[in-house]
Design a binder for these strands. Structure first.
Length: 577
RNA sequence: GCGCCUGUAGCUCAGUUGGAUAGAGCAUCCCCCUUCUAAGGGGAUGGUCGGGGGUUCGAAUCCCUCCAGGCGUGCCA
């Protein structure tokens, strides 16, 4: 059920029937304040202006054409020409009953499913995943889950970095350890250390750095021995990633990995193709594309370098090849990139160029979904206490440990394995939710105390709200799976909860429109808050039977909405905490 | 130099694409456990939406300008 869409359609039709232009939007929104009802239409003023009439008079005409008597018991004109809509309690009750009877909370699947390619996570396999990969991975995964829930055909693409000069150094170090008969697999168990030690050899040992450069060349020319060594490294590194995904509860699997190296054979073809279209110009030894879209006021153009002096390719080339694959082979209608905001110029360039070179269809939507940096409390990019880059796995372990300590202190009588499990779920959820709940585009400050707090817009608060409902359900001793009773909306808190429950679909629609899960987080937080008020004001189990049954339904609907919403965010729920 | 992003309560963050009196949480100060988990709820205090102009019925939101910070800007990704 999408109330906003329903009202939009009806009011717009009434506006057109009253003389507004066919495309005049009704602009129905959730009301800003309770006295303005549940929904308000803001489009009257604009439409009236266009046809040169008084907004309030026009609003009156629209109301004559508008019949909302089935859903609303009051529709009024307010202020300069707003239309305020007050939903009918009986209708809210029956809407909730159908929501309850649906296995997907009455959220419609899309009528025109799109193939959406989502590029997210994309760690560099030379190192272990660190805090900088958190946002792309977590936000991308939430959007992917939401798109799938609405019925779109989603193709995950984990564009991991498995190629480039740094691998020469790493392979040379593997080789050296082998010569020294050292245990290579042990050394690879900590990629950070491995990388650091390889780097030291590279910087300090000339023979080593020469060997490293040789290995880059052999690797790129397809030398079998070298590829074997490389494959071994990549396999270990991918396993590290998968362990982190497992811990994080991210839906990426091996099948979604489409590494940079997969496009190696396409890179010369991309250049040839661009060249054939007359797009390439050689400048200072490099092959460049000069697009006038990237000219400054003086006419100087920032070039897109697609091939280096000496023949090497760059990430622009790889991204162009990837885009051609996503269009040509995967048939994308929409391609989303969850990548750091610092790469926005890069994406503007390859999007513009790939359209110019006909690598993608004009109607295909290419969207960079940029995000800001995770900051420490000092306002600088988040680091560990020792000043290093924070490994994601270590961060998650710390979160689980902190959450466990909290659970153990609040709930000392609980068996330890349950405390541990709650610590695990709450810890991971807290880290993910802290990230998901903030506006994607801005930087945010990483703060343990805030994210693990039970107060405010946090994972623990939501999980606690869910477990409270679960507790009531347990105590009710009802067969909830088959439990169906009429829902009647009477008290103020029941009504607020009912309206909120009906707005779930609107929240998830916002997530996929802009790739912004924080809208869903805000919704769930509001829902949980309204439920808490309802819980305080409206006793459930002690009420008379029909009231009790109705309220129990409201509680059940809250539980399933919280659970479904958190699932879309990639967050587990707990029946007890 | 040029380009992009950011600037909202003491702190951490929202603000549904131009709507009504700018909202939450923390912190501070008051209430509420003989009732389903008080890890909770109810209330109060707190704002020149970075500054200044403009557009219009109406601006945190759009335009111009200035200030502050971040990032990017021909061979890293």
């Amino acid at each position: 059920m999408n109330i906003q869409t329903l009202l939009n359609q009806r009011i717009q039709a009434a506006m057109v029937a009253s003389g507004a232009a066919d495309d005049a939007p009704a602009l129905v929104r959730q009301s800003a304040k309770v006295q303005f009802g549940d929904y308000q239409a803001n489009g009257i003023m604009g439409a009236a202006k266009k046809i040169g009439t008084n907004p309030r008079d026009f609003a009156a005409k629209v109301l004559e054409q508008l019949d909302l008597s089935d859903v609303a018991d009051k529709v009024e004109i307010a202020g300069p020409g707003f239309i305020n809509i007050f939903l009918k309690n009986v209708w809210l009750g029956s809407t909730l009953e159908s929501l309850r009877d649906s296995d997907r909370l009455d959220v419609a699947t899309v009528t025109d499913p799109q193939t959406v390619v989502v590029d997210y996570s994309g760690p560099n396999l030379a190192k272990e995943m660190h805090v900088g990969h958190l946002r792309s991975t977590v936000i991308g995964d939430a959007v992917v889950r939401t798109l799938e829930f609405l019925g779109h055909n989603v193709v995950r693409q984990n564009h991991v970095g498995d190629w480039g000069t740094q691998f020469g150094m790493l392979l040379a170090y593997m080789e050296r350890l082998r010569e020294q008969n050292s245990e290579v697999s042990m050394a690879l168990s900590d990629l950070e250390t491995f990388y650091r030690e390889a780097k030291i050899c590279f910087d300090e040992d000339e023979a080593f750095s020469v060997r490293a450069r040789e290995l880059v060349v052999s690797l790129q020319s397809g030398d079998a021995e070298c590829l074997k060594l490389w494959n071994e490294f990549i396999e270990v590194s991918l396993q590290h990633c998968e362990e982190t995904y497992q811990m994080l509860g991210v839906s990426l699997s091996r099948a979604d990995v489409k590494p940079e190296s997969a496009y190696n054979d396409d890179l010369p073809k991309v250049i040839a193709d661009l060249d054939a279209q007359g797009l390439i110009k050689e400048d200072q030894g490099a092959k460049c594309v000069f697009l006038e879209e990237f000219a400054n006021k003086d006419g100087d153009i920032t070039p897109i370098i697609v091939q280096k002096t000496g023949g090497g390719f760059l990430y622009a080339t790889t991204d162009l090849a990837a885009l051609r694959y996503r269009q040509g082979t995967l048939n994308a209608d929409r391609v989303l990139y969850f990548v750091d905001a610092r790469q926005s110029l890069h994406f503007q360039q390859i999007f513009t160029l790939s359209r110019k070179a006909n690598f993608v269809k004009p109607e295909t939507s290419l969207e960079h979904m940029p995000f800001g940096t995770v900051m420490g409390s000092d306002g600088k990019p988040f680091k560990t206490r020792s000043g290093g880059v924070a490994k994601l796995s270590a961060l998650l372990e710390e979160a689980q440990e902190r959450a466990f300590q909290l659970v153990a202190s609040k709930n000392p009588d609980m068996p330890e394995d349950e405390q541990r499990n709650i610590g695990r779920v709450v810890g991971v959820a807290s880290v993910k939710y802290a990230d998901l709940s903030k506006n994607r585009t801005s930087d945010y400050v990483f703060n343990w105390d805030n994210m693990l707090s039970f107060e405010g817009n946090t994972a623990p608060y939501l999980l606690y709200a869910y477990s409270r409902v679960a507790s009531i359900v347990r105590r009710s001793e009802m067969d909830v799976a088959n439990f169906k009773a009429p829902i009647s909306v009477v008290e103020e808190q029941e009504r607020a909860l009912a309206v909120k429950l009906c707005q779930f679909e609107e929240a998830i629609q916002q997530v996929i429109n802009d790739g912004m899960p924080h809208f869903l987080c805000a919704y769930l937080y509001e829902l949980a808050g309204i439920f808490m008020s309802f819980y305080e004001a409206c006793p459930i189990l002690n009420a008379e039977d029909d009231v009790k049954f109705s309220r129990l339904q409201l509680a059940l609907n809250t539980a399933s909405t919280l659970k479904q919403g958190l699932e879309l965010l990639g967050i587990e729920t707990l029946e007890r905490m």
